[in-house]
Design a protein around this nucleic acid. Structure first.
Length: 541
RNA sequence: GCGCCCGUAGCUCAGCUGGAUAGAGCGUUGGUCUACGAAACCAAAGGUCACAGGUUCGAAUCCUGUCGGGCGCGCCA
């Protein structure tokens, strides 16, 4: 929006902004330009006059009249007319040519190119990071889908992104895990608070056949975690999520990063010792209480190691650290935020995205998700059950900040009531039309720019034109679910267009060519939208 | 007790840095295949946006309080 842009909507928006600035003598205001809610309200609407009402000290509708004239002067022939409506909205009515040129411009530059943000950042997104002591659950799948889609969105808007899985391969849970495997190897029951899932039996069997010693818990822990991480990596890849790195907690110790990290906190003067433990004074930065980094026993806490990990992320040159965390870890956020604020010099923005819970619903009942009883639904089971595309769609379609019920019966159905197929169907339908158009000999005669425009073509063009703004908004708000909604809207606009407008064999000079072009940019927009969600856009279904 | 998240149509949820008549999917009712894919389209019904105050030209959206639900408050991870 700052740089000159060939995006047709940007051009309109810039014209409105320029007119507002000229009128107000102030470059501070940033009026909105939105598609009009209803066709009788024109094509685009701006609230600029209302925004200027206070600074200019005049009634909005009076300002709107002056502003409308300025906008008309700014835009010239592209604009058919303006109208002032309601409390002071200015509605812009565009001519057919504007729509044809907009579609042609998208077709030429690649549909709706997304311009990079003004200030690109190096961002590291850490997500899933589930303990490597068991398979990924459906809940982890929600984290994975979200973190992956968010990363894709950030990349799309010009940021340099790395994705990382923090592997908690040290500490008590892993000891516990090893003890559980060992118990199964010797035919005993796992410890009371141990791991009892059937996958532990399988690991035990494998360990036995490979000649592991059930009394060598350290080696068993290392091997068991290794196998689990391999399994997790496979589950994620099968789910379309490829992490840039799996970062081992244990490697922090091996590479001496824990001492270094804690030393860095110490240098900044917020570390103290009490009761034989080493503390970080997180209360200096808004936390409820101070936190232990090193226990009186000499063991580093989970928090201590995690701080060191985050310091390392910063030292690797990242500007922004995004942690995708479960709702049950939200209490952890203030202390990590405090730790990072306590750093002086080389720092980064820390940001936590909290995932709310997910319930799987089947036959109208919530399925049990008790980890203890071992009857969790794994990510592998979920993707096998409903397919990767449907799983990703259903896990992403709702705000990550909202607890959701995932209706397995609906997700499983390969029929019309399943929303993911609605969007994919639109794409396949377009490809079918384009195939047919190619078979029947190309675009036909006439200048597509001069072809008249049907109302449902207008609706489709303007929906497709929203793509860059939607992507930016979804990225900024960390809200991939907006792309699901947007993709559905594009599909709906296409289906309406299909109802009203014949493509192959359309009457009129340039009409067929124009519509083929529109089909092309629509298909590309759907494909790119789904691509941001990690969902395929099949040419045939 | 304190903190975070949430409360919008029968169900599942969008919309929340304030904007025009609050939307979608599913479900319900009725209609549409002799044009390029009916996995589609059209129409109807369905709402005290939890409740009560406040802020203002304007509040589902912002502020305060109340009620209801989820999660969290370790020298656990």
């Amino acid at each position: 929006m700052n740089a000159p842009s060939s995006d047709p909507v940007d051009v309109l928006h810039s014209a409105v902004t320029a007119a507002a600035w000229r009128l107000a003598g102030d470059e501070g205001v940033s009026p909105a330009l939105d598609p009009s809610p209803r066709p009788e309200m024109g094509d685009y609407s701006t609230n600029a006059a209302m925004m200027l009402a206070k600074p200019l000290g005049k009634p909005p509708r009076e300002i709107a009249a002056e502003l409308a004239a300025a906008i008309e002067a700014e835009l010239g022939a592209a604009l058919e007319k303006t109208e002032i409506a309601g409390p002071g909205f200015i509605n812009l009515f565009l001519g057919d040519a504007w729509y044809r040129e907009a579609a042609a411009s998208m077709s030429a530059t690649g549909a709706a190119a997304v311009s990079p943000v003004a200030r690109p950042e190096r961002v590291i997104v850490e997500f899933v990071s589930a303990n490597p002591t068991g398979p990924l659950t459906a809940a982890s799948g929600r984290h994975a889908a979200y973190g992956d889609a968010l990363s894709r969105l950030l990349k799309e808007t010009g940021h340099a992104v790395t994705t990382e899985y923090y592997v908690n391969d040290g500490g008590t849970q892993v000891d516990n895990f090893a003890a559980s495997i060992a118990a199964r190897m010797t035919g005993d029951e796992p410890p009371e608070d141990g791991y009892k899932g059937t996958y532990v039996n399988e690991l035990a069997e494998r360990a036995a056949t490979e000649g592991h010693d059930p009394t060598d818990l350290e080696r068993l822990a290392r091997t068991g975690v290794e196998w689990m991480v391999e399994g997790i990596r496979g589950s994620l890849e099968n789910f379309g999520v490829r992490m840039d790195d799996f970062f081992s907690e244990r490697s922090l110790y091996e590479d001496n990063l824990v001492d270094r990290g804690i030393q860095r906190l110490r240098d900044n003067g917020h570390v103290f010792e009490e009761d034989g433990a080493v503390w970080l004074r997180t209360t200096d930065f808004g936390d409820d209480k101070d936190r232990v980094l090193v226990r009186s026993s000499g063991e580093v806490t989970y928090f201590g190691a995690d701080v060191a990990y985050h310091v390392d992320k910063i030292e690797r040159g990242n500007d922004r650290l995004i942690d995708v965390l479960g709702a049950d870890h939200h209490g952890y956020v203030p202390r990590m935020a405090a730790a990072i604020q306590s750093l002086e010099g080389d720092r980064a923005e820390f940001e936590a995205q909290i995932m709310q819970l997910i319930h799987l619903v089947e036959g109208g009942q919530r399925t049990k998700m008790s980890k203890r009883a071992g009857d969790i639904v794994t990510l592998d089971e979920l993707t096998q059950d409903i397919g990767v595309d449907a799983a990703r769609w259903f896990l992403l379609a709702r705000s990550h900040n909202q607890t959701i019920d995932l209706d397995l019966d609906l997700a499983r159905s390969q029929s019309s009531e399943n929303p993911v197929y609605y969007v994919q169907y639109a794409h396949a339908r377009i490809q079918s039309i384009l195939r047919k158009a190619a078979e029947e000999g190309g675009p036909g005669s006439g200048d597509p720019l001069a072809a008249p425009v049907d109302p449902s073509e207008k609706a489709l063009v303007s929906k497709v034109l929203e793509f860059p703004a939607e992507v930016h908004e979804a990225a900024e708000k960390r809200a991939p679910h907006r792309i699901c909604a947007y993709a559905s809207e594009v599909a709906a606009a296409f289906h309406a267009f299909y109802r009203d407008c014949q493509v192959v064999g359309a009457e009129g000079e340039g009409v067929q060519a124009a519509r083929i072009q529109l089909c092309g940019v629509t298909a590309e927009t759907i494909k790119r939208s789904l691509g941001l969600l990690g969902i395929t856009a099949p040419d045939r279904m």
